[in-house]
Computed example of a mutant assay.
Amino acid sequence: MNSFLSNAKRSCGEFLSSFKISQSTILHMVLGNNSCDLDSCVSAIVLAWFRSQMKNGNEVYVPVVNIERKQFRTRTEIAYLLDHLNIDSRNIICIDEANVRELSNVGKGFFHLTLVDHHVLLKSIEYLQTYVKEIIDHRPQLIELPSRIKCNISLVGSCSTLVAEEMLKNKAFSVPSVVETLLLATILIDTSNLSVDVGKSTPRDEAVVKQLSGKRTKDELNLLFRSVADAKFSVSGLTTEEIILKDPKWIENSLETIMMSTLHLDVREFFAREDSIDVIRNYCATHNLLAWVALAPVINQFKPIALYCEDDEVREKIIEKLIVSDLLLVKTSDEDHARSDVKFLRMYNCKNTRKQVLPLINEVLQQRSSNLSA
């Protein structure tokens, strides 16, 4: 794996200069989503690696994680798993190292793109849409996609499950131990160790875990899950801004953006930080965010939701949308840690994650876009 990643990084760096001399190679980038969680990173790495093993022709497969290098250290579970498997993280290509703007100028015949763990590009890189050849994603489809794009969009617990299924269909292909561990760790993290109570896993996730596990015992799988989970939820040494950027997702309309963070520490502990409100306010202002929303770990049988939005009308519409949802079971909250700048809610259906919350907030955002353009 180290050899593949090192060669891929070198190929990505050399492609533009060599393209000017000889137009004989196609660079095929496999791009993860902009939250760059473990699933997005591993899906990109493993799919690019597998396709490179199977390729017939002149395509060079390059995995790219959709995050800037300076933010990579906040993905503590990725750093832990790579180190655990002796994979050099310096060979991981970050989005700011990939020269995507320059690559988009070489023409569709020589630059291809596969999206993993997402199917909607951010506005900042939506110029890449014309190069998308394939999509592999495990979230609900939000937009209509062109028929020219090969799509595998299935509601499973982890995108890595879909990547693993492609490999496992090839009975003649032997999956190396390091790749098995990358995929197993990711699927277990995404499904909370295949927990029935949490309800994130599907029979397809379970089947893939069974196939990949081989001779690994249940105790070994539990240990793998626990060690990566501990790393994921570690915020040791991170600044307040790095904490809100540790696990973010963005939704957009044509003009505005909302960011939703998953906080990996108690909401009371986070807002006890003296700079918490200033960091949120400054980040929203600097990045022109309409609102910031956060989902925190369970407290007393509910998940806290924090909402910062300076637009009173938008804030109230988001709160109303979440409260009226029969799925979420959200109620207003007046906590001791509450700050006048932030509104707090309680979500009592603790099986829900951002996957259930974000579509509702997106409805508010898209309705606002319709109203603004009317």
Rank of each mutant, 00 (worst) to 15 (best):
K215C: 07
K218A: 15
K218D: 14
A207S: 15
L182N: 05
G214I: 03
D197S: 14
Q211I: 00
S195T: 04
V196L: 14
E180M: 06
G199E: 14
L224P: 02
K200L: 13
L188W: 02
T186Y: 10
D197L: 13
N193S: 15
T191Y: 02
K218W: 00
K215L: 10
E180K: 15
D219H: 11
V196K: 14
E220H: 03
D205Q: 05
K215F: 03
A207M: 13
T191H: 07
T181D: 04
F225G: 00
K215I: 06
D197R: 14
T217Y: 02
G214M: 06
T202Y: 07
L184Y: 03
R226G: 01
N222Y: 06
L183V: 11
L182D: 07
D205A: 06
L188P: 07
P203A: 04
L221C: 02
K200F: 11
E180G: 01
L194V: 07
E220Y: 01
V208F: 01
L223M: 12
K215P: 00
E180W: 00
T181V: 07
S195E: 06
L212E: 02
T217A: 01
D219V: 10
K200T: 06
P203N: 05
D190A: 06
R216A: 09
N222D: 13
V196G: 04
G214K: 03
L224W: 00
D197Q: 14
L188H: 04
R216N: 10
L224C: 04
E220T: 12
L194P: 08
T202S: 15
G214L: 03
S192Q: 10
S195K: 09
S192M: 10
L223K: 12
V196A: 13
K200V: 07
V208T: 12
V198I: 14
I187F: 02
L224V: 00
K215W: 00
L183A: 15
S195H: 10
G199Q: 13
D205V: 09
G199K: 13
L221F: 00
V209T: 00
D197H: 08
R204D: 14
N222P: 00
I187T: 08
A207P: 03
R226M: 14
A207T: 09
L224F: 01
V208A: 09
T186Q: 11
A207R: 14
N193K: 11
T191K: 09
T202Q: 14
L194A: 07
L212R: 05
L194D: 08
N222T: 08
V208W: 00
V198R: 15
T217H: 01
V208Y: 02
I187E: 13
A185L: 12
A185F: 08
D197M: 12
R204V: 13
I189K: 11
K200P: 04
D219K: 12
N193E: 11
S213H: 09
T202C: 10
P203Y: 02
L184M: 13
D219F: 07
K200M: 14
S192Y: 05
L212Q: 02
D219I: 03
D219R: 06
V208H: 09
L221D: 03
S195P: 05
D197C: 11
E220G: 09
A207K: 15
D205R: 03
L223G: 08
S213G: 03
V198W: 14
S195R: 09
S213F: 05
T217E: 02
T191M: 07
L188G: 06
L212V: 06
R204M: 13
D205F: 05
